[in-house]
């Protein structure tokens, strides 16, 4: 299975990911893409931007383990994960998870599982700019519930 895991300040291209996944396997009949983007408001406050931090080395390794788990559960042809770090503005892309499989079912499920595990297991932290200054974003228990559901 083809895999590409990138952590980078630069933006990514969905077209490029689509082209790569198709080029890697002629069996890729179902391709699913998830993109997370920066919102302009959170908890009733205007958000001017986000700062994203990670744990170099560990974060890459965890993403690799998450993709391993997806590949163990479903017959996949390719997985691309790109997560941005550094300063981002409202509307900017944060994360891309792109999965190719023979049919849509595996692609949808694997894409969702990778995102759910990424939210709870990958060492990234977000700080947002609000009118009064900055605040670190707190984790949401609903994310933990979603990730745990895959363990059942």
């Amino acid at each position: 299975m083809y895999r590409s895991i990138l952590i980078q300040p630069e933006d990514f291209s969905l077209d490029r990911a689509l082209t790569d996944l198709k080029a890697q396997s002629g069996l890729a009949g179902g391709l699913c893409f998830f993109t997370g983007a920066v919102r302009n408001s959170n908890l009733d406050e205007t958000v001017g931007g986000l700062y994203l931090e990670h744990y170099p080395g560990m974060t890459e390794r965890q993403l690799d383990l998450i993709v391993d788990e997806a590949a163990r559960r479903w017959q996949l042809h390719g997985v691309i994960v790109v997560h941005r770090i550094g300063n981002l503005a409202p509307g900017d892309n944060i994360v891309l998870v792109a999965v190719s499989a023979s049919h849509r079912g595996e692609a949808f499920d694997a894409c969702e599982m990778i995102m759910d595990y990424l939210k709870t297991n990958a060492t990234f932290w977000k700080k947002e700019s609000i009118p009064d200054g900055h605040r670190w974003i707190e984790s949401r228990s609903s994310d933990q519930v979603k990730a745990t559901a895959w363990d059942a």
Partner: peptide, 10 residues
């Protein structure tokens, strides 16, 4: 060893 708050990526 690293200690950190709950993660908030994605």
């Amino acid at each position: 060893v690293a200690f950190f708050p709950p993660v908030t990526g994605g």
